[in-house]
Amino acid sequence: MNVCVVGASGYAGQQLVALLMNHPHVGKVFLMASSTAGARYSDLNPAFKGRMEELLLPASDLLLPGFVKENDIGAVFLALPHGASMPYAQFLIENEPEVGIIDLGADFRIHDVEVYKKWYGDHTCPQYLDRFVYGLPELHRDQIVGCRTIGNPGCYPTSILLALVPALKAGVVETDRIVADSKSGMSGAGKTAAISSLFTEVAETVRPYKTGKHRHTAEIAQEMSQAAGEAVGLLFAPSIVPMSRGIQSTVYAAVKPEMLEWAKTSILDYYKEFYKDAPFVRVLDEQPETRNVRGSNYCDVWVTIDEETSTLVAMGVIDNLVKGASGQAVHNFNLMFGFEETAGINMLPLYP
């Protein structure tokens, strides 16, 4: 199957291209971009020298009548900034309904248009929000299979949700005051040049930002509420740390008094049972580290009960560019078209 990556020159797009090049069911990968259109891909990304020498096509070519059919494109990955995927998705839905759409941005993750407006602003095609499935395979696998429109989750939400959702589904924790504290490497900020991304600005420091106001709060709360069966109260506190890739999230929630004794002895085993059929979640007996998932599609999870405060503490670590973006997109692609679930993304972490 031929596929197209719109936004191929960014960090997530670059990682996605690398995965698709080695996918057993992918033929030609069409590369598209806006500001870098016309450039040779390997000039922008020297790691691809000798492997991908194609020129980047203008992203607008995707909207040309006949382009998709003439090039036998079966799936389009939209690796674009928030707000930029809408016109491409709308065009494909209305003109190429058999083509699979996987949006790596936030345009189609949130189901309620009013919630979307609160966090992101106006949506140009809200009539299609309900069509998209939130693409976290460990939670929505059955809905993803065969679906042609997927909203790929954000990186922070992936690590947080996989850490806490089992406890929410089991009814173990109170839902009114959930706290999620996350540390992310700098690649999550993207490739755009900024003073705040300079080495001397990020080295040897931990930089909190947008505490309680980060846009990912909306999709985290949406999925937590669905898992719990009721609205949740969530405080999300992200920080930047001086590493290139990786996210470590620690989530705290009070244990319900009637569930405390069970949770003390059984919560870890319950998590292992919950994820027993999830090929990319590893529930550990010890606290996880980002270095042990680097370059892989794994999410390592650990959970415990702090008996002094009757608090559930759950941790999730991922590579933000793989499980938090491109690897998860390929996982959704596999489920969408009935390929082996792990095809193209079953690589081991890069260690050391």
Rank of each mutant, 00 (worst) to 15 (best):
P153R: 03
P153W: 08
G154E: 03
G154Y: 01
G154S: 05
G154N: 11
C155H: 13
T158C: 14
T158K: 05
T158S: 12
S159C: 15
I160G: 05
L161A: 04
L162Y: 07
L162E: 06
L164C: 06
L164E: 01
V165G: 12
P166C: 15
A167H: 09
K169M: 15
A170W: 03
V172A: 08
V173C: 15
V173H: 14
T175I: 14
D176K: 08
D176C: 07
R177E: 07
A180F: 05
A180R: 06
A180L: 11
K183L: 15
S184G: 11
S184I: 00
S184F: 03
S184M: 12
S184P: 04
G185S: 03
M186P: 01
M186R: 11
G188D: 00
G188T: 01
A189E: 00
A189W: 01
A189K: 06
K191S: 10
K191M: 10
T192S: 12
A193H: 06
A194E: 08
L198N: 12
F199L: 15
E201Q: 14
E201V: 04
V202W: 08
V202C: 09
A203N: 13
A203T: 09
A203M: 14
P208E: 10
P208T: 02
Y209M: 13
Y209P: 10
K210E: 15
K210Y: 04
T211F: 14
G212R: 01
G212H: 10
A218I: 05
E219Q: 13
E219P: 05
Q222H: 13
Q222G: 10
E223A: 07
S225Y: 06
S225C: 09
A227K: 04
E230D: 08
A231L: 07
V232Y: 06
G233P: 02
G233Y: 05
L234K: 07
L235P: 01
A237S: 15
A237T: 11
P238F: 02
S239W: 04
I240N: 00
V241K: 11
P242C: 02
M243T: 14
M243I: 15
R245E: 05
R245Y: 00
I247L: 13
Q248G: 03
T250E: 04
V251I: 08
Y252F: 11
Y252S: 13
Y252Q: 11
Y252D: 09
Y252I: 02
K256C: 00
K256A: 04
K256S: 02
K256Q: 06
P257W: 00
L260H: 14
E261D: 12
W262T: 02
A263S: 13
K264C: 07
K264P: 03
